[in-house]
Simulated assay, not measured.
Amino acid sequence: MQWFRITVETTTAAVAAVSEILTAAGANGVQVADAADPEHIQARTADEVFDWRTIPHREAGAAVTAYYPVDDQDAARLAQIQTRVAALPQAGFTAAAAGSVKTKIIADEDWSTNWRQYYRPVRISRFLTVVPAWSDYQPATQQEQIIRMDPGEAFGTGTHPTTQLSLALLEMIMRGGERLIDVGTGAGILSIAGTLFGAADILATDIDDQALNVARRNIKLNLQAQHIRLQPANLLADVTEQADIIMANILTEVLLPLIPQLPDHMLPQGTVILSGIYRDKTAAITAALAQHGLVPIYTLTDGEWAAIAAKRQSEAG
């Protein structure tokens, strides 16, 4: 089998946005080479040192790559991606974010080499480390918890600010025993993290069946996550249950139509965690929340990204 590889040259700040563009075009996930990688990979012990002078890595910018089976949709898929990438500056990113879009046909036997060479255990929050399934990595301390992931065709490492902000808010809010809904779960990282924080029940949804398959595969790798339930759904339109915490790490354009659906799916004293927000869109998200009786209780930022935790105004005291 042959694969259609698409690589977008972009900036560190736009990695999550480009990743969403490639995923929306049908990729199960993305491969990222980022000049910020040295900031994300941390030593397991005080004696372990990464000498980035000897480890190949980008010195500037970022490249986001996705693979698609070669088919009659290649030309249309490429045109869609090029159009959305070219529009990134209109969404508040710098002109450099809309870099070149390169393509290449590769053979199936090159697949695992192209992916596995990039992945090491990566600390993504205070207590969580994402580990490739084939790694023999073991926690360095009792407090460190592991999420094992099998990238297969693609691997979201969770190193991007949007994921880190989501996890930081989840750590701040959870006390154990909560019911969670993970809207647009993707590879399932946030849901799996929720189990490590003590969630009693988790429903993970996604409109993309391929994303659900990736999440299902990753859940099987994490014994503590076996109770996560998966459901195909367009945001919360097809969901009937309520939760203590609803989390969504998706772009602003998708968060806005999600917000009106939130109150009906929140249990009393419930909280929503919204990430993937461009910092210049924070006011728009806050205004949309207010229209539906929700107010921020925490706002975290990282570079050009923001994440908001909100509650019902009547319960936010």
Rank of each mutant, 00 (worst) to 15 (best):
L190R: 13
Y119M: 05
R148P: 08
A233H: 05
W305C: 13
W115R: 10
R179I: 00
R116I: 02
P232R: 15
I81A: 01
A24G: 15
P139C: 06
T163E: 03
L167G: 06
T299F: 05
P38H: 15
K220H: 12
Q261V: 03
R5T: 14
R77P: 02
T282G: 06
T129C: 06
I228K: 02
A63H: 13
R116Q: 13
E315L: 06
A187N: 12
G270F: 03
I245D: 08
M1S: 08
I55K: 01
A97P: 11
I207K: 04
A237Y: 09
G270K: 05
D47K: 06
K220L: 10
Q210D: 13
P132I: 00
Y68R: 02
L221C: 03
E20I: 15
E171K: 07
R123Y: 00
L212N: 05
R123E: 15
L128G: 00
T94S: 15
V64D: 11
P69C: 14
I246P: 06
T23C: 15
A290E: 11
I285V: 15
E109W: 02
R84K: 15
V101I: 12
G303V: 14
N218E: 03
E59I: 13
Q226R: 13
N218Q: 08
Y118M: 12
I106R: 01
T11I: 15
A46V: 07
A66Y: 04
Q138G: 01
D34K: 04
T159W: 00
V130D: 02
W3E: 01
D208R: 03
R179N: 09
P263K: 04
N234I: 00
I124E: 03
E59H: 12
E20Q: 14
Q164K: 15
K220W: 00
A243I: 08
E48D: 13
Y118W: 13
L128Y: 01
R58I: 06
T54K: 07
I207R: 05
T11A: 13
E59M: 11
V130G: 09
I105M: 01
A204Y: 04
Q226F: 03
